[in-house]
Design a protein around this nucleic acid. Sequence first.
DNA 1: GCTATTTGACCCGG
DNA 2: CCGGGTCAAATAGC
Length: 262
Amino acid sequence: MINKKELVETLTKGRNSAKKLQNLLRQEVHEHDDGLVSVDDLVSEISQSFYGGLLVLNSGELTRVPVRARPTSACSSDKTPQVFTGDTGKTPASAVKGRRGCYKRRKTIDSRVEVSNTIEDGYAWRKYGQKEILNSNSPRCYFRCTHKEAHGCKAVKQVQKLEDGSNKFHIIYFGQHTCQPPNRGLDLDCNNSESHPNLPNSPSTITKNHIDPSLKQEDLSNKGSCSSSFALAWKEIFLNEFECFMNDGNLSDIWSDDSIFP
DNA sequence: GCTATTTGACCCGG
DNA sequence: CCGGGTCAAATAGC
């Protein structure tokens, strides 16, 4: 059986750590009055807390419920049909030569939103579309994970430049990466492309040029926010996963990824 | 030649 | 019917 008390305590600890991290990030101060607390330490602590919770879960006589389509995963197959379906059940127009494939529109409720100075998040994205949006000067760009073909990664994101003159970007993420995050772990030097020879330096790695070609390349790298962006991304993941677990008792596949939690 | 990007067409949901 | 999300042919870059 699952030690429910231990599980609750472990996850609660993780939640509290996440809140601390959230406060730290809001204050942009990496210290506490009770001593130095780095973002990395907190992220590590959160990671261990959730991993501990997962161990408790796995050690119990748990009949593991198949991971449902997560609320943040618009690509998941049972809640939302696959984006590209050569076989959707009905006789698709795509069956006719020269017609496009049938697909379902994503639900915004399955997304998570972020406003960032940079559209880089360590993952390799491939642009697959761009649209002019009504009453908006900035086009919306559509990206999917570069490893969609290789690893079946279903992560997708939409990026649109904010029109408030802040040079920030409104980013909507759909789905979770099932591929390996190129910048995860302790390597926070996201500007050191040589440490990730297979990924970010490829042409598929998006830059702000994809959104605003007028921007200079030296303006694109947000060097100071590299670690912060990493931590922010994890904060999002942890908080979301915790909420999902508390709501429906399920964890997504990322928690069984040994490469993330060895 | 291979891969990524661009862009107009297609398709769906509201 | 319209706006927006996606596809895929054409094109560009390496």
